[in-house]
Design a protein around this nucleic acid. Structure first.
Lengths: 227, 227
DNA sequence: AATTATTTTTAGCCTTATCTAAAAAAATAT
DNA sequence: ATATTTTTTTAGATAAGGCTAAAAATAATT
């Protein structure tokens, strides 16, 4: 029986796998070199180099000029990194006094800590959370996520009620905007009217009426309360 | 007024500073290249290269062929890494279910996470611990440690009573040995006799009489109970 | 004091991950 | 169908951190 050594994955490789994982979840079959380069804020030539290395390690399927997709092993590795990232985000918000716009940068570092026991114990300590502070699902040990049926706020009809369950943009600027208007996970929102010209929405948040742009409405995930 | 940019210190540089910090605490003025190489499990030539870089950044004082010592800035950087290492060790033992022989490896990774807020909040969350699970002192924000008067168990006289307050060797093997004999921080120990031939000790630990070698006795720190 | 041994430094090479510039392939437009 | 644009890959360079082997400096011995 051959000894299978789980090949070492470097920090940089983990980041590439994570980028491909996120880009691939948009229902795309193969992810393009340029898309990865843009996401990673690097050059296409660097991406090609790394892709070759990942293909060599059987973490991605790669055909020249045709983009990449994750192998089963690559997907599991990426999911493990995402799992750690989101668990740490929960830790930072729930146990330390971080707000949801402060966690990303630190979680980007913590997600690379290697220790199975650490992840398992952290999961237990946090009482097995299923979602991170932005409403994103936390993959389980096998990389599976229970996807919830969330829709984009801008797709709701006038007069519908809903609850905020996530955000599509987790940038600090956007999250601070939401804080300013008292929109958080669990907040009740009602669509009062939609402006035909710019598709901005007038909504009611906790009895306060505010106006939000289409861009904002496109980045808030909600669960419809009435159908 | 000039803007002072706190120069970036890489992970590798942090590890070298930490090694010099620990080696320098033995009352030695300058730390030798070979000593660093041995501690870091690397070659002397690599150490020389790194030392030059650290000297360039004003983190160490370096005179060719005469070893290195930390500058004020270098010592503060090293102390900050040690502070993080020991705080994380407390976290792992107190909050997650790690035992004291399991924390080192993970803390070696966690000590490099960069976030002032994280360290401060962790410190608060842990209720400002002063010592790590091995009894080593945790430097404060300014790198200061309150040194306690501990002595090595082997230096006690026969019949003296004492309390275990730390260990000199934090290897997993040694810590497991202590676990096996129910010696932990706070454990009461009484010296019953000392064998002249090999300087082994017969001691009483919680009403159990055991024999420990000189090597073991040299690696247990205690606080004398009677004088 | 001169020789030997040890320590430290230098010089040159390797790997990883990045870059720029140029070449090749694929996609798009005329 | 050919020409043009865009995307992707290749080739060659660079910086960080490490190595080996050789040279230089210091320490130890006779």
């Amino acid at each position: 029986m051959p000894i299978i050594l789980k090949s070492m994955v470097t920090l940089s490789e983990e980041n590439y796998l994570k980028a491909i994982y996120h880009l691939g979840k948009q229902g795309v079959n193969a992810v393009s070199t340029n898309a990865i380069a843009e996401k990673m804020d690097t050059k296409a030539s660097s991406v090609t180099d790394m892709i070759k290395k990942l293909a060599e390690k059987n973490l991605v399927n790669y055909i020249k000029y045709q983009g990449v997709s994750l192998t089963k092993e690559g997907r599991l590795t990426a999911a493990s990194v995402v799992r750690k990232h989101r668990l740490w985000e929960v830790f930072l918000v729930e146990k330390l006094q971080f707000s949801w716009d402060e966690v990303h940068e630190v979680a980007e570092q913590l997600e690379h800590i290697q220790s199975k026991k650490l992840v398992n114990e952290l999961d237990t300590f946090l009482e097995y959370p299923t979602h991170d502070p932005h409403g994103d699902p936390i993959p389980d040990k096998d990389g599976n996520i229970t996807k919830t049926d969330k829709i984009i706020l801008s797709q709701l009809q006038v007069n519908q009620r809903c609850m905020c369950v996530g955000v599509n943009d987790s940038s600090a600027d956007f999250l601070k905007y939401l804080d300013k208007h008292h929109i958080a996970l669990g907040t009740q929102i009602q669509i009062l009217s939609k402006e035909p010209f710019d598709e901005s929405l007038t909504i009611k948040v906790d009895d306060v009426v505010i106006n939000i742009s289409k861009v904002v409405a496109n980045n808030i995930y909600v669960k419809s309360q009435t159908l």
